[in-house]
């Protein structure tokens, strides 16, 4: 089961109640991982509204997750 390191920003950080966490996941892709975490933390934003970065680069939602990956879910922000 891959162990991944997660970082949250903005709305997701608030909803998760934390800045980062490490999880063991059965999810095969970032999309599956987000669904898993959305159920756990009550994330309201749909995947279509987010971007995901894996290992410091924007990634597709369906790339395979590997052990040790660093995953960042990024909601858009617009304040100015």
């Amino acid at each position: 089961m891959p162990r991944v390191r997660l970082q949250y920003f903005a709305l997701l950080r608030e909803e998760a109640g934390r800045q980062s966490e490490t999880v063991d996941t059965a999810a095969a892709t970032p999309a599956d991982l987000y669904a898993e975490l959305a159920a756990r933390h009550g994330f309201r934003l749909p995947v279509a509204q987010l971007r995901v970065a894996v290992n410091a680069a924007f990634s597709d939602w369906d790339r395979p997750l590997r052990d040790g990956d660093e995953v960042v879910f990024i909601p858009p922000v617009a304040g100015g």
Partner: peptide
Amino acid sequence: QWPEATRDGLVGNCVEAGV
């Protein structure tokens, strides 16, 4: 990065979220 222009209702700005 952000392919849709319809997310203003979903994300906070300074008025709603504080800054």
